[in-house]
């Protein structure tokens, strides 16, 4: 699988997309819930680097993520957030390709309520959209 030509380091204000494959992770108005950003069992949150992409291109990127997954998911929406939000919450975003544009938000604490607060902080700064 090819990689993108994006720089190794994720820019401080680079735009990130969290694609949502669980319908309950978005409010009715498309606002993401904190659970949309909680890390997986590896303590990482998967995102796509979508800086300079149009809304249409971001949607296509989301559908590509949907296609790549093996669990037959449905793309319900996306949440866009700048990397500065991640950095302000003492996390960081690291390139993790392939697939192209893939990155992980890492550095999550282990304590549950602290994770919740960080996820809540990211969700409240994100621009959500239901597809």
């Amino acid at each position: 699988m090819p990689s993108s030509e994006l720089p190794e380091e994720v820019g401080n204000s680079e735009l990130l997309a969290r694609f949502v494959f669980q319908r309950r992770h978005l409010y009715q108005d498309g606002q993401p819930k904190p659970a949309a950003f909680l890390p997986n069992s590896n303590n990482e949150t998967s995102v796509s680097r979508v800086d300079s992409l149009s809304d249409q291109e971001i949607y296509i990127e989301g559908k590509e993520c949907e296609r790549r997954r093996t669990d037959n998911p449905t793309l319900y929406g996306r949440a866009l957030v700048g990397n500065e939000v991640v950095l302000d919450l003492n996390l960081r975003t690291v390139k993790d390709e392939p697939p192209p544009r893939h990155a992980n938000i890492v550095g999550w604490p282990l304590e549950q309520s602290e994770k919740k607060l960080i996820a809540l902080g990211i969700a409240e700064e994100a621009n959500g959209l239901k597809y």
Binding site: Q22, Y27, P34, A35, L38, Q112, A119, A123, E124
Partner: peptide, 23 residues
Amino acid sequence: ELTPATDGEIHFDWRVGHKQALT
């Protein structure tokens, strides 16, 4: 609102507006 989460728990979410929320 009830939300399943990757931590295996069901989250209870209340939101009033921008930066006004409890989970």
